[in-house]
């Protein structure tokens, strides 16, 4: 694998994570429990989709085949998507969405803070922009973890169930392959193993303060680094790509 191929794959991974989570959050539009949350979740969806535009555009540049960011979003098959399994999981009830946000925003906060120091100026620039937004996302998720966990017996139960259910997708966030190896040597990518301790520490603190229990299950589901996904991604892609597949190059 060349450095350029690694950069292409790395930007796809970063871009796909924000594109797919952005799509998931946009599904809350007009359906959130209260109007403030409708605005919050869709505002964050916008941040994420905006970030994915920048990252997929850069991925297309690294690929060098004349593709646009839209080609990469709308014409790529499922097996060529590299987002973490966590972000493609269904919204579930509000507690599931919040736990997914909480795991992911804590991870992104640590990741993008490091990426601001990347030797790749474009990635560092996008990271500097996006870290400001991630801070808002993380605060939103943390507030809700505390409120739901330390809320009513019903909200406590639901957020604990969501923690237990999504826990098996947490290890994959830190999984690395050849792509990471090549780019870490170049000072472009972040060594994900160095983020894990800090992630666990932050997660544990909030979970305990929310009077919840940190899951202890050690079974972890992974696969996205090879483009192997859970059953849910195919449906997202079918919906997202429908128009461009049915009417190629359609514009309005």
């Amino acid at each position: 694998m060349t450095k350029q191929e690694a950069l292409f794959n790395y930007c796809l991974r970063l871009g796909d994570n924000s594109l797919i989570l952005g799509h998931r959050l946009s599904e809350w539009s007009s359906k959130a429990p209260i109007i403030e949350e409708d605005l919050a979740l869709t505002n964050m969806a916008l941040d994420l989709i905006g970030r994915s535009v920048a990252l997929l555009k850069y991925a297309a540049e690294a690929e060098g085949k004349g593709h646009s960011e839209d080609d990469l979003a709308y014409r790529r098959p499922e097996r060529k998507f590299y987002n973490n399994l966590l972000v493609e999981q269904p919204n579930g009830d509000f507690a599931v969405t919040i736990v997914r946000q909480f795991f992911n925003s804590t991870f992104e906060f640590l990741l993008y803070e490091e990426l601001t120091k990347s030797k790749d100026a474009t990635i560092a620039g996008i990271a500097a922009k996006t870290i400001k937004e991630i801070k808002y996302h993380l605060r939103h998720a943390t507030d809700w973890m505390l409120r739901l966990g330390d809320g009513t017996p019903e909200s406590h139960l639901r957020v604990q169930n969501a923690l237990n259910d999504l826990w098996m997708f947490s290890d994959e966030l830190f999984e690395m392959n050849e792509v990471d190896e090549i780019l870490i040597k170049e000072g472009i990518a972040v060594d994900l193993t160095t983020l894990k301790t800090n992630w666990e520490k932050r997660i544990n603190e909030v979970i305990l303060e929310a009077t919840l229990i940190v899951p202890t299950s050690t079974f972890m589901q992974t696969g996205s680094r090879q483009g192997i996904h859970s059953e849910y991604l195919g449906y997202i892609i079918a919906e997202m790509q429908y128009l461009q597949r049915a009417y190629p190059d359609a514009k309005w």
Binding site: E36, L39, A40, N43, Y136, H140
Partner: peptide, 13 residues
């Protein structure tokens, strides 16, 4: 503050 997220991404309510 009512909400950290307002009518547009750049505003709070």
């Amino acid at each position: 503050m009512i909400s950290q997220f307002g009518s547009t991404a750049c505003k709070a309510l």
